[in-house]
């Protein structure tokens, strides 16, 4: 039982943000004997499966799904509504015949205007959804390796990257 509770607030290495987080989150949980004897990968495995029927675990998954769905719905429905409203404006008002460098907006907006919006939404979603997963991992006392990064630094594998600090978790590629 205590397995899945252990760890989220443990010492996270010499990095500054980690030290700040300990002050906020309270005392460190002492690892169980069994956990201390496990290798790192075994411990991850263990922590993931140990509390299979615990409320905390199920709640964490539900919370993660809800957060991801909310994010996806806001962005997806938002984009579709933007498209509908924009095209209505272009068709029904005089807005469409305004020109931008000689090109009427009825052509410029659907021709190129939506592409930057799409790219921006994709970038924002990836950032936010990974932050959501970080948060979930933290609740379970795990830390999520920032995807795409090889385990190079201690900071990558530290739970210091919460939803608030996750913007720093960039993809180096």
């Amino acid at each position: 039982m205590s397995d899945s509770d252990a760890g989220p607030t443990g010492p996270t290495g010499p990095t500054g943000p980690a030290a700040l987080r300990i002050a906020v989150r309270g005392p460190e949980a002492v690892p169980t004997v069994r956990e201390a004897l496990l290798t790192r990968s075994q411990a991850a495995d263990h922590a993931r499966t140990a509390g299979a029927d615990s409320d905390q675990r199920a709640q964490a998954v539900r919370g993660l799904i809800r957060a991801q769905l909310r994010l996806a719905l806001i962005l997806g429905v938002g984009f579709f509504c933007t498209v509908v409203v924009t095209s209505l404006l272009l068709v029904t008002t005089g807005l469409g015949s305004l020109t931008l460098w000689g090109v009427p907006l009825t052509w410029a907006v659907p021709g190129v205007g939506f592409f930057p919006v799409l790219l921006g939404l994709a970038w924002y979603f990836r950032r936010r959804s990974e932050a959501n997963e970080q948060l979930w991992a933290e609740v379970l006392g795990l830390s999520l390796q920032s995807p795409g990064t090889r385990p190079r630094t201690a900071a990558v594998a530290s739970p210091a990257q919460t939803a608030q600090t996750a913007p720093t978790a960039e993809d180096p590629r």
Binding site: G7, A44, L64, A137, L142, S143
Partner: peptide, 20 residues
């Protein structure tokens, strides 16, 4: 359903490390 949902929405084991 719950087990499948968890599998679909939680990161893979390989990406997880213990919290320290």
């Amino acid at each position: 359903t719950d087990a499948v949902m968890e599998r679909l929405h939680t990161p893979e084991l390989a990406a997880l490390r213990p919290g320290r």
